[in-house]
Every structure is written in C-alpha cells, then in structure tokens.
Design a protein around this nucleic acid. Sequence first.
DNA 1: CGGATCCATACCGCTGAGGTATCGGTCGTT
DNA 2: AACGACCGATACCTCAGCGGTATGGATCCG
Lengths: 293, 293
Amino acid sequence: MDPAAAAIRWVVDTRELRYFVAVAEELHFGRAAQRLGIAQPPLSRAISLLERRLGTALLTRTSRSVALTEPGAVLLREGRTALDALEAAEHRTRRSARAAEGEAGVVLVAKAGASGELLAKLLDAYAAEPGAVRVDVELCGPGQQARLLRSGRADVALLHRPFDDTSGLDVEELLTEGQVAVLPAGHPLTAHRELRLADLDDVPDLPHPRWPGPDGSYAAGRGPEVRDSTQLLQLVSLGRTLMVVPGSVRAQLGEGVVAVPVVDAPEVTTVIAWPPHSRSRAVAGLVQAALRL
Amino acid sequence: MDPAAAAIRWVVDTRELRYFVAVAEELHFGRAAQRLGIAQPPLSRAISLLERRLGTALLTRTSRSVALTEPGAVLLREGRTALDALEAAEHRTRRSARAAEGEAGVVLVAKAGASGELLAKLLDAYAAEPGAVRVDVELCGPGQQARLLRSGRADVALLHRPFDDTSGLDVEELLTEGQVAVLPAGHPLTAHRELRLADLDDVPDLPHPRWPGPDGSYAAGRGPEVRDSTQLLQLVSLGRTLMVVPGSVRAQLGEGVVAVPVVDAPEVTTVIAWPPHSRSRAVAGLVQAALRL
DNA sequence: CGGATCCATACCGCTGAGGTATCGGTCGTT
DNA sequence: AACGACCGATACCTCAGCGGTATGGATCCG
C-alpha cells in the first residue's frame, strides 16, 4: 500500500478528537482548555487544523460565542462513541490481563434503586451455576449504564426501556410491567385508585425531581435536584416531590409513601444488555440465568 | 479535574492501536512495518511501550515467531471496532459536510448477486416517496457489508442472517426463506426433488467454492476461488462447483443451472440494517419503505 | 470611549516519533 | 559443528509538531 495514501486516510487522532469533544461540550475554548489541562492557544490551533483537514467548519465562532455546525454535531456524537470504543478496548484488554492472572469477575451495572428484587434473584441464580465467577455490582445514576457498557467499564447491565437507549447493544427482554406513582402518604392524590400522567404534571406542591445530565449538571426547573433514588425516596416521604417508577419497586417502599398505578404511563421493559461481540463466558452465563428466571 | 489523572486515563492512541492491529494481523514485525510505511525498529518500540503501559504482554515473540496472547486477542478485536468507529466518525462528518452543500445521498450496500429483486423493489418504493434522496448502491463481497456500515463508508445495508453478523447494528427483518442448491443442469443430483446438506458435502466433482476472507486471502481447499457471484454462477453452469443460496435468487438463474430445495439448510432472513443512533432522515425513509414492501 | 472578554496569531523550547546501524538469538543447511 | 539467513530488540541521532507565553483583534458592556 502507498504509505502516503495510508497516512492520508487517518485524519483524526484521539488527541484531536478529545479536544474537539471538550470544546463542543463546553462551547467555550477557555473552559475546554482548562478541562483538558492545556492552554487555550494550542487548543484553538488543534481545532482549526482539524477543520482544515476535514475540509469543513465544525464550529462557528464569533469572539463572543461558539456554536456547533451540522457536521460538528455529527462529529460530536460519532466522536463520543469512538472514544468510548477506544476506552472499551483498553479496559477490556486490562480486564483480560487480570483474568489471565486468575482474578476473574464481571461487572454488572444497574440503576440504583431499580430492579432490586430481579437483581437479587439473578445474582442468586447465577451464583448457583457451576463455573460462576465473582459478580461486582455497580449501581449508578439513570442513563449512565449504557455508557459504562460502551466504554468497557462494565460487562452487563440491567436497562429499562423505553428510558435507556439500547441501540448498539445486544439485549434480552426479562420483564414488562406498568408504572406507579409514588406519593407522600396522606397527599390528596393518594385518594385515587389510579392516576394519569396529566394528573401528575402540574401538582403545585409536588414538582418533578431533576436528575443530573450526562455532564453532571442539572436542567433548570422547580423540582429538587437528586442524585440517587434513596435521596429521592426520602424527598417523597418528606412531601417535597413525587416519582413515577416501574411497579416492582413497590416491594421496596417503606413507611410514609403510597404507590398508585399510572394507567397511561408507558410500559417499562427490563432488559439485560451486553456489548456486541462479547466473548465472555461469564456474561453468557449471566444472560442464561436471567432468561431462566 | 486533575490534569494528570485525565492524561493517565488515555493509554492508547490511534497510532499505537493501528500499529498493534497491523502486527497482530501480520504476526510479523517486518511485514507490518512495511504495510504501515515505517521502519521496523520504531514499530517494535511502539508495541513494547504499549505493552508496558497496559501492564500486560500482548504478543509472545521468539526470534522466529510472533503469537497473540489472550489479552492481545481481546485488544485486536476491540481495537478493530474502535478504529472502525473512528473512521466512521470521520466519514460521517465529511458526509454531513457534503450534505450541507446540497450533495445529499445515502450509500446502501448489499451482497453482490443476492436479494436482487428485493433491492429493486426497495429502491423503487423509496424513490416514489416525497423527499427521497439519491441512493448509491454499493455491491460487495459477502461479510463485508457490516464492516462498511461500522466504519461509516455506508449508511444502510441488506444483510442475511445467520450468515452476516448483525450484532451492534439496528435491524428490521424483511423476509425469511429457505435455501436451494444451485447445480449444473444435468448433474445426477438434480434428479432429486429435494436435498439435504449432507448430500452436498462431499460431491467429488462439485467442491464448495472458496470466498476471500476479510484480509483478502483464500482458505486452503479444493474448490475454485471466487470473488463475486456472477463468476460463481458461471462456474456452476460450467459444472465446476455448486452453491447453496436463498430461494429468491431462483428468479435470476439463467440456462444451464438447476435449483433444488435443501430442506435442512438454515432459513435465511434478509434484514435491513443501519448503524445505531443513526439520525439520518434518508435512512429512516429507506427502512420505512422496506417495511412496507 | 475604556475595559473586559474571548478566540486567533506569532514565536520559542522540548518531547517524542521515526530513521539508520547494529546486536543477539534461533533455525536451516552443508 | 559452523555458517548464513532471518527476525526482533537496542542504541543513537534528527527533526516535526505539540504545548507554552505574549500579544493581537474583535465584540460587548457600562
């Protein structure tokens, strides 16, 4: 192969891509540079060089604002998944090295507070199998699990459709259920036998809670900022907010809160998901165990 | 974030990964270096540095041979997909830039010679839709389509399960059908009304054809080496080989060959596939059109 | 109109990637 | 057994390019 042609094919390297993603997320060269631990000028240069090589503008900049162009938005989205894939390659290689030294183990992620019962049964069923390895359970905020899978920090995840994005992952469905609203005991709404989403939208004393986005920041709004579901549950029992969750969490509710079915909320399907092409025997075992539940 | 910690997180960059993949594929530092257009010593250095940073051996080398370790095999597989994702990011960004200039168009890949009728109907149906854009049809050898999708050189593909690997792609099923054996007219086997796979395995005068692997080389064997299905069909009518294909290709068979159902061959499902998270309106339109067929 | 803010440019120093020469170990041949 | 061919590792050198500091130029605010 012509070496020049081979070199030309590779316009983007990881460094530039990381730089671009940082700027695209911050929409501010100074802050992005700070986040990357470098000075602002080299960052400006790197980005404009990248643009020249791609032959397209990625950002429209005035001296007062930075915005993504259409191709820039594409590169942000695709670049993130590419960086995730790179990180995954590294993590899984390291994992494989540790496995070779006898330190096996899979990492399973689940949304903190959800699917508790299912998870417990799954772990029991898998542990009973011959050849089962250690399962490290990682609990995280909503919407984080798929990212952990894609970046190789986890091997299997319990996800909930339609909330979590399962595209690009291999999945098996485990359980489909309706949702319930969890309300403070004694609240007027608890008098109903069933509710509709519209009933919950503008309750003055119970604004919807706000979860952190992928970047860790919160959207604007009235509701309390929450980081995990224990915290959320406590806020509900204090009469500060409400939550709409899959019916199975009823089992874990304590005093001070009441669950009421929400009849027009979308059905939630709990799925077990793993990265495509997974060759891990442990992952396969976990999936088998989950399907037998 | 601590800049040092941020730097430490990124052990592998694209350059090193490309180098490693080349060596892992060639299993020979000299040839890999030649393929990469660099000298052998810097390649040796880069690999051993990568191994030191990952904290594990990727290759076992004697002065006469190079072999992959277990973690090395993992890095090869995961690294390839990561490089594909990077290439995809670049291609799709470029594509988006061209689209912004009015040069729209989607690239659809199909196995050369398969699904001809379905493909024609799909293109017609989509072209009739309002807002349809130009569709570039790319025909390629078997097993190449998924790679083209994953590396962003194509936007949609027609794949055939169980032959093609659809993991990590979004798919919709289009058609399921049985398979037929295509044989030279007049061959004794054509006397049967139906056949079994075992009947076709060791026909002395009709060895199975050999397709090129992902690296473009052929496996050892008696059968003729083929590169596309026209060539293959001609070889069948010349009495040199046979083929087992989905039933719908019967429509395109000409003189000199006969199709006989193979009752125990796995059913083939034709699916339309696209990369996960695709935001392309054109891709969505094609999928809709395909589902309406 | 002056100051603050923010991205781009100019210039410099140094890290590190790649090149050449060579070593050391293994296998095949005579 | 000795020699040569082969192949990966090491030593050493050169220079591209990455990041840093200083500064320019444009825009918005008071």
